[in-house]
Amino acid sequence: MLLSKEEVLHVANLARLSVEPSELEEMAGTLSRVLEYIDLLNELDTESVSPTSQVVEQHTVWRSDVIQDSLSAELATQNGPQVVSAMFVVPKILDGGGQ
């Protein structure tokens, strides 16, 4: 298998997804099969090929530094699952987290 159960757990953690222990084996299997298929790309020597990350040829697309209307705090937070004093509430943060 190209992706071990441990690796699936690691990736799930990075992606903030939880994979049930009972599903782990199957998930590792499914993803491994896809990765095996993807292995096909290794037939190609791409040493001297430059990568394409965008297909649009334009560059330096920018806007003037002009203020546009913001949303009202009410509209900005109208979809919030939990909102207090126009701020989004999140549960207790355990470790430092962040950047």
Partner: peptide, 17 residues
């Protein structure tokens, strides 16, 4: 985005999509 870059405003009054 075009939201004003200001310090010390009421919460979430300078936000947009």
């Amino acid at each position: 985005c075009g939201c004003a870059n200001l310090f010390g405003q009421d919460p979430n009054t300078h936000t947009c999509p």
